[in-house]
Design a protein around this nucleic acid. Structure first.
Lengths: 217, 217, 217, 217
DNA sequence: GATGAATGAGAATTCATTCAT
DNA sequence: TATGAATGAATTCTCATTCAT
């Protein structure tokens, strides 16, 4: 029984070590992909960043592409950030919070994720595999929320389906790019102000006649 | 003098021929970059597309990167499309038209440009060299327009600087991405509807109390 | 017309140059394959032997395996050497000559081909693609010849099908290996004597009661 | 003394365990070498087949090559199968049995050995080290047998030395290759028929005027 | 100028072998 | 002794760039 315990411990320890190493490689790869883009990133640089030998990468991943896929499917995509909780939105307040949470998410990995998600966004195969389904689901759910909002009067009158897909396009685009335009200059506060302003415009555009975000600042 | 004339003619003719060839290569490269991304595009494929020899490329451009740079600086970026004419905006109507023109621009090269601009957007050096300046200029001009609009009452009350940069971020992002989310499904009409809807949200969000795009459809 | 001629000349010249280079690479590869076996041969060594850069190989062949296949399908296999002319065999004399020609073929490339053919013989895919068909054809043709020989009395009585496949197995095996057993020692004359002796045994075994090769020595 | 006994027992037991492990590894390696060829076989696959860790192999063998050498020198080669008992041949019957036993040997490992022996046959160093000596010995012994047979009249008149080396070449070649030519089609019975037929031809060729194998079927 | 073969630096990946546990 | 992750040299192949024709 003792032996069994020991054996199990050993097994669990190894599992954890493998997991840790994978994590390290993924972190390293993510940062290199983010800096150079997937195609220009080299396994050599990933290995150097992860501080292991080039060949060791292949003890944990079967190919460079496998690393990219692992990153993409491991981290929650912006889409998922929007999806979670969308059902609970029943009023203007909830809607505002949903959008703000999705876009302003303080995810520490966000800057490094942007480029990687772009990759999934650009690569047809990855897009179909990891995004398309989510987005369709998100769109139809959002359309239902909008439909409810219009009926309840806290959204102005619009076609729910078209509006839903337009909003998602806007949000996805915005979540992927907002930082780029002013990279060197701006302080975090300035960034937050700008993002808030954009959200405000979006929400105001959806709700009409009353700025929804402004009052919360 | 006759000789001189001939010589000048010959010179001009050569100039034109060189220009034409460069144009062909740029077109070819643009389409290949768009399809594969800059890093994965090969000079071989560019040459094949331009129907010239691989080596001939180097008679017109000094490197693959030089081609990318030439494309970026030759074609008007979305930023420029917004810039031109921004000064003439003096009322709600003009503003609506400005935004619509920029986003819906029927530029035949647009789909092929998106990827290339993304490249410039992702590559720090290119970004600084070809976008940063334009964007700053655009932002400050737009801020002035917004400021005027708020004073004149055709825009709701907002901080002009923050709003300007937020709008630009939204527009840039949207101009670069809107198609992706629904690639297989949608008809051109559906696409236009969706883009219109997004613009509508944006403008309504800026102007308040009256949908500006809706009535024009 | 002159121009046309020149152009054609240029075209032909290039064709020839390409052909020559391919030939050089094939020769080099053949000798390296022969020395090391396909799997252990490296493109680096092939390139060095052909005195070109490693990368240049890929201007002429799409992969290392493509080189092997080219070699195999370019040179006539032992099977083909047996096939050609088998139909014309109508008597004991012709039969003797057929076998002798096939086995003793003074092909200059033979020593270098043996190992390569072995590769095709060992690799299931290559075998099916380049040998299987030939061998089946050869077997049925040989069976017909044997059948005729038995009827005409210049072969002893045997089952033609079984005998045909046995003879082919013996010949193929022998053509692929005979040298190996005594590589360093023997003179060409000794080798010829030994091969002749083997052929003699085979033919005597087939014909019975009279040594067919002995008298020619 | 008891202790001593125990110690000796322990020692012997360890010896046996080591031997058993080595055997397992050799079996595993043999089957992998046979399937892929030496160069393409990986230690990983050998380890997996032997159901041990990759690293453990190196507790028993110093290198991959060492495994190959161990296999070759451990298992009796076809040559050895011919050698053993060759001295006892004193008449036609014995000769027939000798050849049949060597070629038709029901060794279960034969198919797996063929490829390995081919490796030794192809690799100059291995050939010299493990085959050359055996073959020379075999040749001279066989020559003596033939000489005796010719004198005794149960072999037709031939040069014993040349004939001996020819027979060995034929047999070696045939023992290494006979299966290949008809892999998918034939039943075990068909194969036996074919091999018997080949042996028959050989023996008939050696003895003259009387089929030696035919009557035994 | 035009061509495209030649180049060689590097890319991703494999694998025999080592070594800490 | 057993393990299997770590290593890094070696391998096949790619591709921007050069250069002889």
């Amino acid at each position: 029984m003792m032996d069994d315990q020991n054996h199990q411990d050993g097994f669990a320890r190894r599992e954890r070590r493998v997991g840790r190493r994978q994590e390290e490689i993924l972190q390293a790869a993510a940062s290199v992909f983010a800096a150079k883009g997937y195609a220009s990133a080299t396994t050599r640089e990933i290995a150097a960043t992860a501080d292991i030998a080039e060949g060791s990468i292949y003890n944990y991943f079967s190919s460079k592409r496998d690393i990219l896929i692992s990153i993409i499917s491991r981290f929650p995509s912006p889409v998922d950030r929007l999806l979670s909780g969308i059902e609970r939105v029943t009023d203007r307040e909830g809607f505002v919070r949903l959008i703000e949470r999705a876009v302003l998410a303080p995810a520490p990995e966000q800057p490094c994720m942007r480029t990687i998600i772009q990759e999934a966004w650009t690569d047809d195969e990855l897009f179909r595999q990891y995004q398309a389904g989510h987005i369709e689901e998100l769109t139809s759910r959002l359309a239902r929320v909008i439909s409810r909002g219009v009926k309840a009067g806290w959204l102005r009158s619009m076609d729910p389906d078209v509006t839903a897909s337009a909003v998602i396009a806007l949000l996805m685009a915005f979540m992927m790019h907002p930082m780029r335009a002013f990279p060197a200059v701006e302080t975090p506060e300035a960034r937050t102000r700008r993002v808030r302003s954009a959200i405000d415009i979006l929400l105001y555009g959806l709700m009409g006649n009353q700025s929804p975000g402004q009052e919360k600042e």
